[in-house]
Design a protein around this nucleic acid. Structure first.
Length: 130
DNA sequence: GTCGTGACTTCCA
DNA sequence: CTGGAAGCCACGA
């Protein structure tokens, strides 16, 4: 009995997921900002949690945008799968990234994170939690 | 409107 | 085991 058999449910269609960010960019920020101090994560891990494992590159782009992000993003805690500070060149200063990591208690040698598997932080699902 | 690049990852030979 | 290529989305010129 629908007077209109073809009417769309709720005038304004809202098929999009209410919990999904408009763009994975915000999702990446959310995850990166959840990185605890003294821990680092990799682009792939974030990308995987963001649901774009095949687009790990975009994570890097997101970090690039992080410099322009409305909120500070600990991009220095994000390294590649090898624990290399690949993005250090994009920082205001190429040594800032290492300095920040060392300041957090992370050992960095030759642009490589020491004990990477120990300081590696597995990003949990970005559960919306107040 | 089209082409190219990019802070990566993963697969295949 | 090692090396090479492809893939993804977005932005810039």
């Amino acid at each position: 009995m629908k007077t209109s058999p073809k009417i769309k449910k709720a005038a304004s269609s809202k098929p999009a997921k209410p919990k999904k960010e408009p763009n994975f960019l915000d999702t990446v920020y959310a995850i990166v900002r959840r990185i605890p101090k003294g821990r680092v994560t990799s682009y792939g891990a974030i990308a995987e949690r963001a649901g774009i494992r095949l687009s790990a590159r975009m994570v890097g782009w997101a970090m690039n945008a992080a410099g322009s992000a409305p909120k500070p993003v600990p991009a220095h805690r994000v390294v590649n799968s090898k624990g290399l500070l690949t993005g250090k060149h994009h920082f205001p200063t190429p040594t800032l990234m290492q300095e920040l990591l060392e300041a957090e208690g992370i050992e960095v040698k030759n642009d490589q994170v020491q004990h990477f598997d120990k300081v590696f932080w597995n990003p949990p699902l970005p559960k919306k939690k107040a």
